[in-house]
Amino acid sequence: MDWTFIQEYIPMYVEAGELTLTIGILGIILSILIGMIASAIEYYKIPVLRQIVSIYVELSRNTPLLVQLFFLYFGLPKIGIRWSSELCGIVGLSFLGGSYMTEAFRSGLETVEPIQKESALSLGFTPLETMIDVILPQALAVTVPSLVANVIFLIKETSVFSGIALADLMYVAKDLIGLYYKTPEALSMLVLAYLIILLPVSIIGTLLERRLRYAGFGN
């Protein structure tokens, strides 16, 4: 191990890690928003939109992110839609993540028995109150574990951004291997960088799951 080399190139990894994280976080926030809207459409069985949601979910879940990104980044500019690789990364990640989040929210909402909704409505709750005070807290307990799993999955998926020339962690590692042939150093820093990013998320997720394991009425 060449420690001076490692010291010299830590800033490059920090910068790349920041880029990975920024795009990852933006993508995750958008995915959660898409997931909320799409699962609400499915829950309230809104016609037409519901069919669109199910087509979207199937398309996005059954194709790899790298192929989606290639289409967005190399394909779409040919019909005049040009975007930077950063924007493309965010859009691609949200397209992929949105469907995973939809499934997570949907499975949460499904576990709440219909009797919960009916009882709340007959007690005089408005539909909005029923949703916020009765259904969501119970659904959340089921959703959080898969939500956390999805967040980790999406951060891991950002590693394919190097395929569309984004200077992320993979890109830096590959660069250092190609330029200086410092393979062990570059790879150890790469592993370390992902551990630093992902371990806390995984630990917070486990703690959160324990805190929320309270619901489960009506079954």
Binding site: I152, K156, E157, T158, S159, V160, S162, M170, A173, K174, L187, L190, V191, Y194, L195, L198, L199, S202
Partner: peptide, 11 residues
């Protein structure tokens, strides 16, 4: 599980 598969491929 925590490592992206691409990192494993690189390793």
């Amino acid at each position: 599980r925590i490592m992206p598969q691409l990192v494993l491929l690189f390793i």
